[in-house]
Structure formats: C-alpha cells, structure tokens
C-alpha cells in the first residue's frame, strides 16, 4: 500500500489556490489568491517551496510557458492539480469539516 502523503497548512492553501477553473495559475496568481482569501501575505519563495513539495508528492504538475519581455525574458511556470491532488484536497477538506464540528457547538455555547 502506498504511504499517504499529508499536507501542511501552506501546502493545502497553495493546492487549493492552484485549483482555479481558468487553469492559468502561476506563482504570482497563487500568492495573490492566498493573500485575498486568507488575508495572509506569503512570500513568493515560500509559495514555490510549497509547490515543489506538492509536485514531488504528485499533487500538481508544472508546465513552462513562453519567456516574455514584461518578465525580463523569463518564462512563467503554470501549475495544474493532478487527480491525486484533487482527491487529497477533498479528503483534507472533509477532515477539517469533521474536526471543526466541535467548534460550532463551542461558538453556540459562548454566544
């Protein structure tokens, strides 16, 4: 049986940010998405470090775009989730929902 790869918090956020319907996700977009949705500024290098781990675990695939002048002649790397990545994100989401059931009760008690 294959050993299950667990995701860290940043990895999960990056994986979820990669899952955009447009499919044009690259470093800046992912970083911006995380900042907008979580209110947390993440350094681009940290995003790439998480992407590297996700790629190694087989949860995302990367493809190189064309180099452009507005990027100083550097190409973009586009990321896409794999089937395993989508499955893992779903499982993590379900786990979080199950675990946070106590939170609602606690919040009701306080309220």
């Amino acid at each position: 049986m294959r050993k299950r790869e667990y995701l860290g918090q940043l990895e999960l956020m990056v994986l979820l940010a990669v899952m955009r319907p447009a499919g044009d996700t690259y470093g800046v977009r992912i970083s911006r998405e995380i900042a907008e949705k979580s209110g947390r500024e993440v350094a681009l290098a940290s995003v790439y470090a998480a992407l590297e781990r996700l790629e190694r675990k087989g949860f995302v695939t990367a493809s190189l775009g064309e180099p452009t002048a507005e990027r100083g002649g550097k190409a973009r790397t586009y990321f896409k989730p794999t089937a395993a990545g989508i499955r893992e994100a779903r499982e993590a989401h379900a786990t979080l929902l199950r675990l946070s059931s106590g939170l609602a009760a606690l919040a009701a008690g306080i309220g």
Partner: peptide, 19 residues
C-alpha cells in the same frame, strides 16, 4: 543563492510585480 527550484520563474514573477 536562490532555492534552485523554478528559480527563473520566481525571478520572472518578481520582475513582473516590480514592473
């Protein structure tokens, strides 16, 4: 001294944001 993984893309992203 960068991470080595997709270094060029990281540089490009920073350049793009700087522009």
């Amino acid at each position: 001294l960068g991470p080595g993984y997709r270094n060029e893309s990281l540089e490009g992203d920073l350049f793009e944001q700087y522009q």
